[in-house]
Design a protein around this nucleic acid. Structure first.
Lengths: 190, 190
DNA sequence: CTAGAATTAAAACGAACGTTTGAATCAAAC
DNA sequence: GTTTGATTCAAACGTTCGTTTTAATTCTAG
């Protein structure tokens, strides 16, 4: 299926991620990206096809890892819980905690990506919106079901609303976060 | 000095304000602005000289009104207070309250402008930064001095820091505010 | 070794961009 | 009624953009 990512492909992804975050999508040119990645201009279109597809790939790389990690955390939690329902705080931590912990690991582009995420999801384009719908459906469905089971007395529609609000608050946080402030969950524990 | 603003000049300013807010500076073209303002493309450069100068004019129009209003509020407060120092809450309301009340008046572009403000001041360009330094110096100096007098026991450097933090929080609020939520000061009274 | 994928280089494409130009239009002042 | 200055208009300018093409080169697996 997908071939192993090449060295240049990764350099282009990293450069695009950083430049999109710093200057926005329209404010970044393919020539800037190629130059920053020390790659040829044609290589960007060779690997990704178009500028929009490159932005998609930037998001997809991180979201695949992130949502995979979320599912792995849920797996571990449910294995330990046996047939008991998870605690709501566990589910919230699997979903939001995993996201926020992404920005803590040094030597990673997680910090840059989180801010790019916050920047682009405030006014998402149709493209970004559909990409997220596809990429998030699995983990979102699973978290919702876990919450239904964990909070049987709360109407399902209410749970969906609460998730919406938490997502909005988290994106707000991502958009304005600055590097090096330590515990990313602190602002959610008050 | 400055001639009375022409009808088209105002239409261009309004259109630019709304489009810059919706699509960002790089994401908005002069042709879009001219079309939305039902003006000729050349009229935009005739009235403002360049795209950057147009963005500056968008900010300047609102900031001149805003800072003038702030000074008027301070004048009225000090006239009533006689030779007594103003209360800190009064100064804060003159500075931040006036800003936030700007978005409450219907039939005005204040709401749009506040969000444009929040959007552009998170990563301000050099141009925006210098414009703000010039436009804000008067009212900021006066508010700082009023706070020094109002809080003589607090070190001046500490007052400056607190102002910085309040400005940051306010811009965060402006960036994510949505229309029609009523009292703009509610989130500051908790 | 060889075939195929990956990369570089240089050039060009049409489209859209910000900007400029020069003539046409209009409103008042003389 | 003509002149003057401000404003509007259609058209074009040069530049940059995303993208494509062609060819030559390097890397890598069978």
């Amino acid at each position: 299926m997908t071939t192993a990512p090449t060295e240049t492909r990764i350099r282009i992804l990293d450069a695009a991620e950083r430049l999109f975050m710093a200057n926005g999508f329209e404010g970044t040119s393919m020539r800037q990206i190629a130059s920053e990645a020390e790659a040829n201009l044609a290589a960007t279109n060779y690997h990704f096809g178009s500028k929009e597809a490159l932005l998609q790939a930037v998001f997809k790389r991180r979201l695949e890892w992130l949502n995979g990690e979320r599912l792995r955390v849920l797996d571990a939690m449910e294995a330990e819980a046996g047939d008991q329902a998870l605690k709501p705080s566990q589910i919230v931590d699997a979903f939001f905690g995993t996201l926020l912990r992404m920005g803590n690991e040094p030597n990673q582009g997680g910090q840059t990506f989180l801010r790019l995420l916050g920047r682009n999801l405030s006014n998402p384009s149709d493209m970004i919106r559909t990409l997220f719908a596809a990429e998030y459906s699995d983990v979102l469905e699973r978290c919702k079901n876990a919450l239904y089971r964990s909070l049987p007395e709360v109407p399902k529609a209410e749970i969906v609303w609460r998730l919406h609000f938490m997502l909005g608050a988290t994106l707000r946080h991502c958009r304005h976060r600055r590097a090096g402030s330590g515990d990313r969950l602190a602002s959610f524990r008050r």
